[in-house]
Amino acid sequence: MPRFDGFPYLVTRLMSSLYNITLLPEDAPESTLVRLAQRQLGANKLDTCLVLASDRATFCWADGRIEPTDVPPCGGTLLSRRLALSVDLLRTEDLVQRQEHLDRLVANGRAKGTYFFDNLVKGGRNGTREELERLNGTQAEGLPRGLAKCGQCGDWRGECLDADPTFAGIVMPVHCRCQNHNACARCGGRLYERRLNANFYDPRDRGIWHVPGLAIDHKCRTMVRATR
Rank of each mutant, 00 (worst) to 15 (best):
A148P: 01
A148K: 08
C160L: 10
Q139T: 05
G137A: 12
C150H: 06
L135S: 03
D155S: 13
P144F: 11
C153N: 05
L132H: 02
C153Q: 04
G169K: 12
P173F: 06
C160Q: 06
A168V: 09
A148I: 06
P165A: 01
A140W: 03
L147Y: 00
E141P: 09
M172I: 05
R145F: 02
Q139R: 14
C160D: 04
R134A: 12
E141G: 07
N136Y: 08
F167N: 14
E141C: 14
A140Q: 05
G169I: 07
V174A: 14
L147F: 03
I170N: 07
P144L: 12
L132I: 05
D164E: 10
D164C: 14
D162E: 12
D162N: 12
G151D: 09
Q139E: 02
R145C: 04
P165I: 01
R145G: 02
M172L: 13
I170H: 06
G137P: 13
D162H: 02
A163H: 10
A168W: 00
G154R: 08
L147V: 07
P165V: 01
D164F: 13
V171G: 08
G151K: 15
N136C: 11
G137H: 06
T138S: 13
R145Q: 13
Q139S: 10
C160H: 06
G169L: 11
M172N: 02
V174Y: 05
N136H: 15
L135Y: 08
C160F: 08
Q152V: 10
C150S: 11
V174F: 08
R157W: 08
G142R: 10
L135R: 05
Q152G: 08
C150I: 03
D162G: 07
P173N: 08
V174E: 02
D162I: 04
E141V: 09
Q152P: 03
C153W: 00
D162F: 12
A140T: 06
D164Q: 10
L143R: 15
L161M: 05
A148T: 06
A140R: 11
Q139A: 10
V171Y: 02
C150G: 06
V174L: 10
T138I: 09
G158E: 03
C160Y: 07
A140F: 14
E159M: 07
L135P: 12
M172P: 04
T166V: 10
G158C: 01
L143H: 13
V171P: 01
G169A: 13
R157K: 15
G137R: 09
A163N: 12
C160I: 01
Q139H: 04
R157S: 06
